[in-house]
């Protein structure tokens, strides 16, 4: 039972997924959803997925808001580049990170890649350095510093 409920967030997500797919809130579907969610959650603990430990869940809201705002800005910038005449000034930027938590790194990687203007290329676990490709920036170092200030500090507080 402890293994089944080892991943409560995953359990809830799978439960919601089943009900959305079935498009009903009938008791039978709820039972099936609970079974599916329990099997999925058990499978996750069987493969020993690292358990995310959120220290400051309140900050997640702030993070999501910042990501959405950045995605809007970046979408408009990339849209202009894709349709305009200006040549993009793209650079590779190597950023040394203090963040070590695997879940935090996964979130950071998804944020950077989901923003159209930047892509996470490679993470070097030996030097704790990430290689990011930025589509259009004048100063790569300043871009990396801004990323560390805005996202890494937040993620360091959320995942400890």
């Amino acid at each position: 039972m402890r293994r089944v409920l080892a991943h409560p967030l995953l359990w809830l997500a799978l439960f919601a997924m089943w009900l959305l797919l079935a498009r009903s809130l009938a008791p039978g579907q709820m039972l099936l959803a609970a079974i599916v969610a329990s099997i999925g959650s058990w499978a996750a603990s069987a493969v020993e997925a690292p358990q995310p430990r959120l220290r400051r869940p309140g900050l997640v809201v702030k993070l999501v808001g910042r990501v959405l705002a950045d995605i809007v800005v970046s979408n408009i910038a990339v849209l202009k580049l894709a349709l305009g005449r200006r040549e993009p000034r793209s650079k590779f930027v190597a950023i040394p990170l203090e963040l070590r938590d695997p879940n935090g790194l996964a979130v950071l990687a998804s944020i950077i890649t989901a923003t159209p203007g930047s892509a996470w290329i490679n993470y070097n676990a030996r030097t704790d350095t990430v290689l990011v490709h930025v589509l259009d920036t004048e100063d790569g170092d300043a871009w990396g510093q801004a990323l560390k200030r805005t996202y890494e500090s937040l993620l360091l507080e959320i995942f400890r």
Binding site: I71, P116, S118, A119, H133
Partner: peptide, 19 residues
Amino acid sequence: ARFGTFYQRIHAPTLGSSF
């Protein structure tokens, strides 16, 4: 289709997949 290198092109489909 327009960007010059692969690493520039990898940014483009994110437009479709986000907005």
